[in-house]
Amino acid sequence: MSSSSRFAGTESYVATDALKSAVNAALTLERPLLVKGEPGTGKTQLAQEVAGSLGRPLFEWHIKSTTRARQGLYEYDAVARLRDSQLGDDRVHDIGNYIVRGKLWEAFESEQQPVLLIDEIDKADIEFPNDLLQELDRMEFYVYETRELVKARHRPLIIITSNNEKELPDAFLRRCFFHYISFPDAENMERIVEVHFPGLKKDLLADALECFFRVRDVPGLKKKPSTSELLDWIKLLLAEDIPTEALRAEDSRSLIPPLYGALLKNEQDVHLFERLVFMHRRNAG
């Protein structure tokens, strides 16, 4: 294992030590890495960044509630074959013409060791991960229709994300490395914002972050604003050219941050927030 194939974060993605060490463990031992965390903490992005920084091709398999494990391997398009047979098409004699490759197959065929992202695995049926155990373990599967064994040329680095909507089966978990992306603290958040808005004025950044964490700390919010919402908000602040002073807490008008719609996405949260601000003002006055 050469030292060049280690993940050390990228310019556009701030990775904590724990995350780096988990990615590297998965890389070295060629086991899947399961990533969980609050929405908006960059789970999906991780695969893209890892592939980018290691210079490896990326295959993305986005899971929906109707996705079946087989679809990642291949699908046999029986209907097309049936149609062709009724139309008298010559293609019909070769069953291989109707085998549609899935993402896993594509990744297995890759010339270079690829990165395979299985995004939001918890969206699928509860048995979905179990159906993939063998394939992820041995990195091979059998195509019954054509009687061929598909084997991975290079074991891909598999990154799996989950939003915890369903619990994953133990047998599946045992085979993975696991990392939970926790919500970034102020210091890491600063680094993240800087990556996205290089050269942002220091005072604006500090004020915006303080404001952001204040909103996050409001008790009882149904949906706390996340990193991606913070980035959107800063983008808006810059676009609207909001003066830094408007973010300062001492200015009582600004207790509701400007353009808060980017941070609070829930009507109840906005009401709650306004009520708190109102009470705060009454107490202050």
């Binding site: 030590d17 724990a18 060490s21 988990a22 463990a25 998965a26 890495l33 399961l34 969980k36 994953l168 978990l173 045992r174 993975c176 490395f177 696991f178 990392h179 939970y180």
Partner: peptide
């Protein structure tokens, strides 16, 4: 030790 801790965590714990 920190690296060891991180590795052990990633390998052994599968639930936040």
């Amino acid at each position: 030790v920190d690296e060891f801790y991180l590795l052990a965590r990633a390998a052994l714990v599968k639930d936040e």
